[in-house]
Design a protein around this nucleic acid. Sequence first.
DNA 1: TTTCTATATGCGAATATAGGCATATAACAT
DNA 2: ATGTTATATGCCTATATTCGCATATAGAAA
Lengths: 119, 119
Amino acid sequence: MRDLIRICKSISDETRIRIVKVLLERKSLCVCEIMQALNITQTRASKNLRILKDAGFVLDKRKGSWVHYSINRKMPEPYIKMLSKLLKQSLNDDEGILKDKKRLSEVVKLGEVSKCKGR
Amino acid sequence: MRDLIRICKSISDETRIRIVKVLLERKSLCVCEIMQALNITQTRASKNLRILKDAGFVLDKRKGSWVHYSINRKMPEPYIKMLSKLLKQSLNDDEGILKDKKRLSEVVKLGEVSKCKGR
DNA sequence: TTTCTATATGCGAATATAGGCATATAACAT
DNA sequence: ATGTTATATGCCTATATTCGCATATAGAAA
């Protein structure tokens, strides 16, 4: 019960839904790519990623200075699996989500030198 | 986005998950049956039912003095449909849920004259 | 070492949520 | 009409959540 509630709460927030939606677009993203894609502060990105991680929704992997986050596609709990699927099907016409994806493609494509020189 | 968040929030609470789980056991239940099954106050039952109703998870139907609530199985939003399915598969071994179901079967079977003379 | 860059986190303020008590409303019975 | 039962809701308090600021930590580079 506790787990289920934690998981549901983790996607009951607009910022975190947006994070999941951009993560579903790529194999993995580092925090600075996510904050640029969503146009949010670093604190906000980090804290919400922590919540998604604690829920089991995303995995993190340190690579030097960068931490790469990815959707947990390996051995997710059944709840996570179903909800990832739900989110994958959802909001694909949403204005805000489309903007995030657009910014994401720009950030990842151009490297965006000012921040995140990781690519 | 707003709808999705409202729906996820509606099942991010133990009381409401318990309500959905007992409602999944029957065609419909009135408020007093639900409050007895979960052993909670009337206020708590009513308020949480309202939240589930606003999310589109449950339907209500007045029958005289009683209001019968049921899972929205007719034309639920895709989100609701998937999440109902998820909840149907979930927590079937959960101690608390089993207790709720046990109390439910007693309440509905015996009529429990002290409250809810609706049956 | 010091100095960057990337990320995490403690604290505090604003806001949201849950649930109790009292009360309101609705339907029915007398 | 009055009373009784079922349900809903306004107000209040306790608790939780979100997020910004400042700061801490971690790794790479100089």
